[in-house]
């Protein structure tokens, strides 16, 4: 299989990755196209030193950050309009004095189950349910492993603004996984 054919084979995977990160089909298509173009321009840079897909994802991460930087006004501008401003912490049951009314559910020892394909499908769906901007920020932090400072710098956000969004994203994801995975896993 030629290098070009291998690139075409990876395209769907790259698109899924870019869509999850960017929450915008047009931006994702552009980022993947630029990734493929960059790979075609310098195939010698690959030189079989790693898995092709891993190498392409490395390029794509930079393209995704470029896209987020390019659209930073749209990304940070949506922060105040797309969320209902409730603190997901309120979904946990606390008494009026601020202490737990109920001990949080025991998720057991999920090491085995959280490495299954089904689990990652649920996780993917939960991440996709996050409000778009919140999802982007969360994935920049967790997937691209950017520091909070780097994210603030890239998107012109205040740390407080970022922390509020990450706080909400983490709690929403926790709740979604509890409802759609851990509660079911305990019941079976």
């Amino acid at each position: 299989m030629t290098f070009e054919q291998q690139l075409i084979d990876c395209r769907q995977y790259l698109l899924r990755f870019a869509r999850l990160q960017l929450r915008n089909d047009t931006w994702a298509e552009d980022a993947v196209s630029e990734t493929v173009l960059a790979a075609l321009a310098k195939p010698q840079a690959f030189a079989n030193r790693s898995q092709l897909k891993t190498w392409l994802v490395g390029i794509l991460k930079h393209k995704v950050i470029d896209a987020l930087r390019h659209h930073r006004r749209e990304v940070s501008g949506l922060l105040t309009t797309e969320d209902d401003n409730t603190d997901p912490l309120d979904y946990l049951s606390f008494k009026t004095d601020g202490h737990f009314a109920q001990v949080p559910a025991d998720w057991g020892n999920p090491e085995q189950q959280i490495s299954s394909r089904q689990f990652f499908e649920v996780l993917d769906a939960c991440a996709n349910k996050l409000p778009p901007t919140q999802g982007r920020l969360f994935l920049m932090r967790e997937w691209m492993e950017l520091s909070s400072d780097e994210i603030c710098k890239e998107l012109d956000l205040t740390p407080t603004n970022l922390y509020v969004q990450l706080h909400r994203a983490r709690l929403r994801l926790r709740e979604c996984l509890e409802l759609n995975w851990f509660a079911n896993a305990k019941a079976t």
Binding site: F100, P104, A105, D106, I114, S115, R174
Partner: peptide, 24 residues
């Protein structure tokens, strides 16, 4: 109660690490 919640958050932390490895 908080110890239980901390365990959940630590699990989430591991989940993220596994997710990155899985996708890579």
């Amino acid at each position: 109660g908080c110890t239980g919640f901390e365990r959940q958050i630590l699990t989430m932390h591991n989940v993220m690490k596994q997710w990155r490895n899985y996708e890579a």
